[in-house]
Amino acid sequence: MFSLVVSATNWSLTREEPFRFVGLANFAQLFGDKEFWQYFINTGYLMLGMPIAIAGSLCLALLLSQKLRGVVIYRTMFYLPSFTSGVALLILWKALYNPQFGPINAALGPIFQWFGGQAPEWLLSTKNLLGLHAEDIRLVWAQFGLGARDAMIFMGIWISIGGSNMLLYLAGLSNIPQELFEAAQIDGAGPWATFRHVTWPQLAPTTFFILVMSFIGGLQGGFESARVLTAGGPAGTTTTLAYYIYTKAFEEFQIGYASAVSWVLFIIIAVVTLLNWKFGSRETNDA
């Protein structure tokens, strides 16, 4: 609530002008702020990996719910990234993405060369798979490729596949009544039909919960990786709304404006969550 009050002020820690209430001026400024929209798009772009991460978690949970020898060890190994220090993981990925000496380019380099191209520069490049322009909100062919934003997505997928989503799916799978599988077997259903008509519908509440949480996490995310790996660059392409709030508040000391951005982010998250509930819960109940 304090930040809501602050968002209606021109509060700056460096006292660039006398403190006063400015009403909705910060919000009005924000909607005309090209950077805000650019970073909003960055935030959305980084969430493109979300469906793959969720599907990956489900596949992994299905594999790890099998009665295999040493399954506990496998589960622990896949969960390792979730309890390893975030900064340590990020530094590891920075080394993996090194364009000259990183193992990723060592593996991909020959493939790209075979096609007559060059291996991506990953964290140093503004290119992306949608061809988003580095400065303006438009698409350009010259920007098509793999760059810092995509590097963040791939890293995020790797980290989240074996994380809490996998655990939630494992819990969801263990709660499906065994009778349903037995009935499907008696009816002659194969593995795919069993998954489609039994497992997937039974996991719908879990999937819905994961989807809601992923949206919330995605909209709030990107700070740690941008801070450690790219400082929001190159040219602001990995700056997310969360990182922008930090920059405005603690680098440029515009606490009032940063509070306004925070509240707009909160409203976006609330609206997306409500839409998820409205449409998602209906689908879940239908299932």
Binding site: T126, G233, P234, A235, E251, E252, F253, Q254
Partner: peptide, 18 residues
């Protein structure tokens, strides 16, 4: 604000550097 000016310059200079 010096940090704001610096951020604007850094963003543009990143593009020159690349």
């Amino acid at each position: 604000n010096g940090n704001l000016a610096n951020r604007i310059l850094t963003k543009q200079l990143d593009l020159v550097k690349n």
